[in-house]
Design a protein around this nucleic acid. Structure first.
Length: 570
DNA sequence: GCCGTTTTCGGCCCGACTGTTTTCAGTCG
């Protein structure tokens, strides 16, 4: 369902690049970029919205773009896009994504030196002809060359889970030298992937010194009084030293998102106010109205405080104005993990270890959900072994040393929609997750729906099947899945493993709207992965979920009562 | 190209940094 949205968003964004290259109005360019972003963020298929005539209600898409979207849905492309491609080589326009190389420089190179693609660009850099262009010196060429390197390496983003670990390592190093310290940027917003890391600190010169000496630093890219950048292994990290009285304004500013901040500044302008990274000011007279606390910024604009995870300009500003923001689920409300693997299948931990580690984490319970028999490479459990495992789990629970273990399974859903295990054994289990693990190219909608209709299945694991950076979701009509889950009382998983984060944030929000509950599970294969629950909570928060929407905020007794309800047919 | 109980036309966020400028353009976040 997202395929249409993503493809259309890419075309619109490409049109924006073409227009910017041509020197068209930057406002028109931005209109295309905004539309592209809004469409990418939509939880439902643009085709559906179009056919229902609901495109008109989307802010940022007007008459002309509606018409162009119609062209795309009917013919798979947009006339204007095709014309632009004929006029200017798309190979050239793609170079707009090269850091430090913008539309003006690119156009100069195109018109002045006949650069038409990546190879041409490499050539004029190597031969030194690029410096012949007006306003182009050797330093600029160096920067572009460096940008090209990053561009060619391709993957300049990392997984949220990796970013958190690097970020916290940096914080630990800086903590002794700073009176205040925080992560900002997309990592603070818990975006599923992160580019650069932004760190803010209050302190003197020592903090800067400590920063550029963090073990693992490969290169110091810049170092001034208030800002420094380093390459820590493969990651660029920016540190900004802030004054205490400007802390809130800076934290707000550097947390973003850019779109969220732009929207805030529009509101500020209407209120005759100005926001920047130093504070919030009256335009007339310049009187400072605040900036020490992040809340100051929102308060001055007549808005409730908005949690970082919501700051994507997806309606949170309107909700803050109307006091309809959700009370987001919090990590400390999580009572247990609902997806783990032990050495009984392809994990490394023993059942005892899982139980004890759960207790350490403050959990009441942990579900052991090893693979079922079809997953032969994962040493999946057949009925007999599962029966043994259930007995072992009950014995461990009787000892009462650790967190309560829920006897569970992550059971395959066969391509024809049938389940991998018989009801006789499923009825013995506390928690049944059903997942798609094969035939990824066929449409999985009916397959998942038939699992939802089984009274034995509590939850659908990693519902879309995507793996970040490596595997697309299987073809799926998520809206139908949400409907089926809602009508059968089936829970959908937020798989919190850093490689999956599936459902995604926008799906969570849609699921909630449609009356579906979610379960967060880490899919841990050893106990060193259980911490990823934090990532799942981050995604839930980005999806506007509240504690009652997430069933592993329920105490054990309530959770068990909840799981029994489906078996009794509601 | 979008949008509006301040506007259907004239606006459209804000600042830092860098380089190559003799006063500012380009790029970034």
């Amino acid at each position: 369902m997202e395929n249409n949205n993503r493809k259309l968003a890419r075309i619109l964004s490409r049109i924006a690049d073409f227009l910017e290259f041509k020197g068209d109005s930057i406002y028109r360019v931005n209109a295309y970029r905004k539309a592209a972003r809004v469409i990418k963020d939509l939880p439902e298929d643009i085709k559906e919205l179009h056919s229902k005539g609901k495109l008109g209600s989307i802010h940022g898409i007007g008459e002309k773009l509606r018409e162009k979207i119609g062209q795309y849905l009917e013919g798979g492309t947009i006339k204007k896009y095709e014309e632009l491609k004929r006029e200017i080589p798309e190979e050239l326009i793609i170079l707009m994504d090269v850091p430090n190389l913008g539309p003006k420089t690119l156009r100069l190179a195109y018109e002045g030196l006949g650069v038409r693609n990546l190879n041409d660009m490499k050539k004029v850099i190597k031969e030194g002809t690029l410096t012949q262009l007006p306003g182009m010196g050797s330093k600029k060429v160096k920067k572009i060359e460096k940008g090209l390197e990053i561009f060619l390496k391709g993957q300049d983003r990392m997984l949220l889970g990796e970013a958190i670990q690097i970020g916290e390592r940096v914080l630990r190093h800086l903590a002794p030298h700073a009176s205040n310290l925080s992560i900002a940027g997309s990592l603070r917003r818990m975006k599923e992937t992160v580019g650069d890391l932004d760190i803010l600190g209050v302190g003197g010169k020592e903090i800067m010194e400590a920063f550029v000496q963090i073990p693992g630093t490969k290169e110091v890219l810049a170092k001034g009084e208030t800002k420094a950048s380093i390459f820590l292994e493969e990651t660029q990290i920016d540190l900004r030293v802030i004054r205490e009285k400007e802390w809130g304004a800076a934290l707000q500013y550097f947390t973003g998102s850019k779109e969220h901040n732009v929207h805030l500044r529009e509101i500020a302008r209407d209120k005759k106010l100005k926001i920047n990274e130093y504070g919030i000011f009256a335009i007339e007279g310049g009187k400072k109205l605040g900036g020490a606390k992040e809340e100051d910024v929102y308060k001055a604009l007549g808005l409730a405080y908005i949690s970082p995870e919501l700051r994507e300009d997806r309606g949170e500003i309107e909700a803050a104005r109307d006091l309809t923001l959700p009370t987001l689920v919090e990590y400390h409300q999580i009572q247990g993990d609902l997806h783990t693997h032990s050495q009984w299948s392809d994990g490394t931990a023993t059942l005892e270890e899982i139980s004890l580690e759960g207790k350490k984490l403050g959990y009441q319970y942990i579900a052991v959900t090893d693979h079922s028999k079809s997953m032969k490479i994962a040493h999946g459990l057949d009925e007999k072994r599962l029966e043994d495992q259930i007995k072992t789990i009950r014995t461990i629970n009787a000892q009462g040393k650790g967190a309560y273990l829920l006897a569970g399974i992550e059971m395959d859903i066969h391509p024809d929609g049938t389940l991998d295990l018989e009801p006789d054994i499923l009825k013995e289990l506390d928690w049944v997750v059903a997942s798609v693990h094969s035939h990824f190219t066929q449409d999985a909608t009916e397959r998942i729906l038939s699992a939802c209709h089984s009274p034995w299945v509590h939850c659908i694991g990693h519902p879309t099947g995507r793996i970040i950076f490596s595997r697309e979701p299987y073809p799926l009509d998520l809206e139908k899945v949400f409907k089926g889950a809602a009508s059968t009382g089936t829970v959908l998983e937020i798989n919190a493993h850093q490689d999956r984060l599936d459902l995604m944030d926008i799906h969570c929000r849609k699921a909630k709207e449609m009356g579906v509950k979610v379960a967060i599970g880490t899919d841990s294969h050893h106990i060193g992965q259980l911490w990823m629950m934090r990532l799942g909570v981050g995604i839930a928060r980005r999806g506007w979920l509240e504690a009652p929407d997430v069933i592993n905020t329920y105490p054990l007794k309530d959770l068990l009562a909840f799981t029994k309800r489906k078996r009794k047919g509601g």
